[in-house]
Design a protein around this nucleic acid. Structure first.
Length: 593
RNA sequence: GGUGGCAUAGCUCAGCUGGAUAGAGCACCUGCCUUCUAAGCAGGCGGUCCUAGGUUCGAAUCCUAGUGCCAUCACCA
């Protein structure tokens, strides 16, 4: 039983005994560091029910608790705060339980299943820093939900069709000279991305030339020959033209290969994929049904709309007048398809940037109006943009931070720092390389995930991501130090797996146990809020607490055998929790660094 | 213009359902490596919590209005 539950019961009982009043609830908070005590009862809210001054009530309740409970060994009252001192024995018992629990904080998987969508890129250009945030968030939230007891399916929908990929295809046909990833040594997504840029360049030249000979700018932008040709290509694709489809398949294939490499390096994975080329027609049937049911209405020109003005939104198009699908149509179809594919799911999470807040608001509302009861279980995991000091990233202007390059840079930075510190003498080059990557990626992932998802991130490529303080490497470093202790403990044959016989705690040890104790609640909180930042901040606090102990007392040098055993056990458990928490963030931890 | 989000130390961020003197990191300054890894620890400096009202015993937190930044409101994605 949790200490809070025990105390709540006793406080309520005490108030009832002392004042014959039944409290609806009792408010607790951790005792501030500047006061003596472990947990604090806030007396102010009781004043509504009990007559008296906060200090009086606090004193009486404190005395009652001390008399009634063995674990309460003292108290003090400051203004309206009753600070309770809990016995070391309680925390030692608590730690015994925590230590024995090999999956501490992790709730066993239930049948409550949920689908998490993330990444979902277009296939005309490589992944960039914005995608990295999306991928890290989606992956981490999926892992957190899993740890909170849910069954999780990770998925993505790939936007593989449309005018954008046709542009790359056309440019490749024209300027490509048959280049392939193999012939150029380029990653497939990079190669295709280059042609997307090449298209834009050629397009701009054409537009400028037309304007020079007197064409109106707007007309030129709409009628540049290369653009018209790309649109022709899209029509051919939709008509199933063999040559176009073959080219489309070939170039998309290159892109997928490139993406896979990036995902692998980033350490994210998926249980399933959907392609828009497979699903873009699905929504149309639903729209047709919706017209019959009166959810949608057709205008004279043939376009189909939904009126959401009653809900405070506006009219939204769901089908163009030429009968082709818009994004909304596809998303309706995709959602329905997913529910069909996963009969056990009880909710879906869409990891998509906050620029699409409105889109998802409308999508969920439409699905609800269509009568799908599961529409209430959809959640848009909306996150802020990653901006550069110069503003928004724009792929056509070459201001994007490329995902692969960034990971490579982080690895290089990790190498430079490691070499300077020179702690890896007997590591092989391969071991070193994998460690540099682990640290570099750790820095990057933590840097992005520690920020509340809904806040935008300002990323300055000039100032490299930190490796000190509240950072991934700092936490990895602590983990490595712990492993070093455990290796030595093993070597020196300390009987540290034995049952604890200790009766008293160092204040730092107590603080550490308190911090360990809240790990399970932290996972639940992170899951409820879809926020890896909650996990990141928790881990940082835990690690700070451990380092403080580490510097203040000797662990293996402790002469009292029982104290030594406790400290080694504490170290081990802290290490396990770091590994577990970082696992939820998708960050690996090293044996040494 | 309508709607939504954000605003906390020079910079980057915490601050749980309202609770004590608003916390970390970076940067700057001062100590600490013959003893478990100094990517560390201990301490110092640094705040009109955007502004003005309101609710409350109590507001960074909740409500209202305003300011600033961002997004969105297209037969775009």
């Amino acid at each position: 039983m949790k200490i809070q539950d025990v105390l709540e019961k006793k406080v309520t009982e005490g108030i009832h005994t002392l004042y014959s009043v039944t409290l609806p609830n009792v408010e607790f908070q951790p005792t501030r560091k500047d006061f003596e005590g472990d947990i604090t009862v806030v007396v102010f809210p009781m004043l509504r029910h009990v007559k008296g001054t906060p200090v009086q009530i606090g004193e009486q309740v404190g005395a009652y608790l001390e008399k009634e409970l063995d674990i309460v060994i003292g108290f003090n009252v400051v203004k309206g705060f009753l600070n309770i001192i809990i016995s070391d024995a309680f925390y030692i018992d608590l730690f015994r339980d925590i230590r024995e629990n090999k999956t501490f904080g992790i709730v066993p998987q239930s049948d409550d299943a949920i689908l998490v969508e993330y990444s979902s890129p277009n296939t005309n250009k490589p992944l960039h820093l914005g995608h990295i945030r999306n991928n890290l968030l989606g992956y981490s939230v999926a892992e957190i939900l899993k740890a909170s007891g849910k069954k999780v399916y990770k998925t993505q929908i790939i936007n593989d069709r449309g005018i954008h990929i046709c542009k790359s295809m056309l440019a490749w046909q024209r300027f490509g000279n048959g280049e392939t990833p193999k012939s150029t040594g380029l990653k497939g997504d990079k190669l295709v991305g280059n042609y997307y840029v090449a298209f834009d360049k050629a397009y701009k030249v054409e537009v400028a030339a037309m304007i020079d000979v007197g064409t109106d700018k707007k007309v030129a932008e709409k009628e540049a020959p290369i653009l018209l040709e790309a649109q022709q290509m899209l029509l051919k694709w939709e008509a199933g033209d063999e040559a176009v489809v073959a080219l489309w398949k070939k170039m998309n294939g290159w892109v997928y290969e490139g993406f896979e490499t990036t995902y692998k390096n980033l350490g994210v994975d998926f249980d399933s994929y959907l392609y828009e080329s497979d699903t873009y027609l699905l929504g149309k049937d639903v729209v047709a049904d919706g017209i019959k049911n009166g959810v949608f209405h057709k205008k004279e020109d043939g376009s189909v709309w939904i009126d959401l003005t009653a809900e405070g939104l506006d009219e939204k198009i769901v089908l163009r007048s030429d009968g082709t699908a818009v994004y909304m149509t596809q998303d309706i179809g995709t959602a329905i398809q997913r529910v069909k594919d996963h009969e056990d799911i009880n909710g879906m999470v869409y990891t998509v940037g906050n620029e699409q807040d409105y889109h998802f608001k409308v999508l969920f509302l439409i699905l609800k109006k269509l009568g799908f009861t599961w529409a209430d279980k959809l959640y848009h995991l909306s996150y802020g943009m990653v901006d550069l000091p110069s503003g928004k990233m724009k792929s056509r202007e070459g201001t994007v931070v490329d995902a692969d390059d960034l990971m490579e840079d982080m690895t290089k930075t990790a190498r430079a720092i490691s070499e300077e510190l020179g702690k890896l003498e007997n590591y092989s080059d391969i071991e070193k390389q994998s460690l540099y990557k682990m640290i570099g990626l750790g820095a990057l992932k933590y840097y992005i995930l520690k920020v509340d998802p809904k806040k935008r991130i300002l990323f300055n490529p000039e100032e490299s991501v930190d490796f000190q303080g509240n950072t991934g490497p700092f936490i990895q470093y602590t983990y490595a130090r712990i492993q070093s202790i455990l290796r030595k403990a093993k070597d020196t044959k300390i009987e540290w797996q034995n049952e604890l016989k200790i009766t008293g705690l160092h204040p730092k040890e107590k603080e550490l146990i308190k911090q360990l104790q809240v790990f399970p609640d932290t996972i639940q909180l992170a899951a409820e809020n879809y926020s890896p930042a909650v996990i990141a901040n928790y881990t940082y606090d835990l690690v700070r607490e451990f380092n403080s102990l580490y510097q203040q007392v000797s662990i293996l040098g402790e002469t009292d055998e029982e104290k030594k055993v406790l400290r080694v056990q504490l170290s081990q458990k802290v290490g396990e929790v770091i590994q577990s928490a970082f696992g939820l963030l998708g960050v690996a931890v090293p044996e040494r660094m």
